[in-house]
Nucleic acid binder design. Structure first.
Length: 300
DNA sequence: CGGTTTTGACCGGCGC
DNA sequence: GCGCCGGTCAAAACCG
């Protein structure tokens, strides 16, 4: 556990190296990686234990989400704001006020109700692979099962339409993401070329999610987010990279993962330098071997 | 051709 | 023990 604490106290680039390293204490072999039963009988990894124990982290609380909502919106466009809109084409895709199903809040499992427009699925910033679909008893809508495409990550989610509102998706997340969302992507090759922004775009129609207020304190809002990103970004933060990070696609800051990550990021912000002694990545030519879409790692 | 989705089979938990 | 139900697997189909 001392090693874990030491890692969190290192500078951001060292932290990333740790995260990239299979031998890192952060990435001890996961329990029940692909065969775990969703539920309470899954023994936590050391990371989870760490989050759960030493840091007093017990999964996202309602307060975390509330705090993150206020953080990401800076009071500029509250969810009660009657003029609040995402865009002309897609106005909702927002977390409803009753986004959290407290009944499912235990065991790192929680549900969100996300209202969409049309068929556009809420993009929470992670890449998911569908691994199953089941029709649910007493429900006309099937439930889809997704796993995070990052092989280091055992996060899962289930998505189904609400019975009472076909525009509302009920998304149940389980497990902790061990990386950042993919839209932060800066590397689109097998080499560490931070200067080349990615050209890959999402498939299909995407909601025009706008993180910048239509009305208010845009600069102040950007500044806060930039500071947050700079504290965890492993490479030089030139203007191009910054614009990528700050692109509308890159910051779905109102969505779930960042809500959960935010308390942890604030801890990273306050860290001081230390060394780490861990080995290199298994494939040093590709720092992100699981997917070119993942540009840098983080913790959720 | 490789990655993703679909879909029926399989499995385990749970209630009766 | 049996049946139901939800979750997962894995082969086939699909797609870019």
């Amino acid at each position: 556990m001392d090693e874990l604490i030491k890692v969190t106290q290192g500078p951001a680039n060292e932290l990333v190296e740790e995260l990239l390293d299979n031998e890192s204490p952060f990435f001890l072999p996961q329990h029940h990686h692909d065969h775990g039963v969703m539920g309470s009988n899954q023994s936590p990894s050391m990371l989870e234990s760490y989050l759960l124990g030493s840091m007093g982290y017990s999964g996202p609380t309602i307060e975390d989400v509330e705090t993150s909502l206020s953080y990401t919106n800076h009071g500029v466009h509250s969810f009660q704001h009657e003029e609040y809109k995402w865009s002309e084409e897609c106005r909702t895709s927002m977390l409803e006020r009753d986004y959290m199903n407290k009944a499912n809040h235990d065991n790192h499992k929680y549900s969100l109700r996300i209202k969409n427009c049309g068929n556009i699925m809420a993009d929470d910033g992670y890449k998911w692979r569908k691994y199953g679909q089941k029709s649910i008893k007493n429900s006309p809508n099937p439930r889809s099962y997704y796993r995070c495409t990052n092989p280091r990550c055992s996060a899962k989610k289930q998505v189904e339409r609400s019975m009472d509102d076909p525009d509302t998706h009920i998304i149940t997340y389980e497990g902790l993401h061990l990386h950042f969302p993919y839209p932060f992507s800066l590397i689109n090759s097998n080499h560490m070329d931070w200067s080349v922004p990615p050209t890959k775009k999402h498939k299909g129609p995407q909601p025009e999610i706008q993180y910048i207020s239509h009305h208010g304190d845009r600069i102040a809002q950007e500044t806060g987010i930039k500071d947050c990103l700079k504290s965890i970004y492993p490479g030089p933060m030139d203007q191009g990279i910054e614009s990528q990070l700050m692109s509308p696609q890159g910051l779905l800051e109102d969505m779930v993962p960042l809500m959960i990550r935010k308390p942890f990021i604030s801890k990273l912000n306050n860290t001081t330098a230390s060394s780490s002694s861990c080995a290199s990545s298994p494939d040093s030519s590709n720092p992100f071997p699981w997917s070119p879409d993942y540009s840098f790692l983080g913790l959720i």
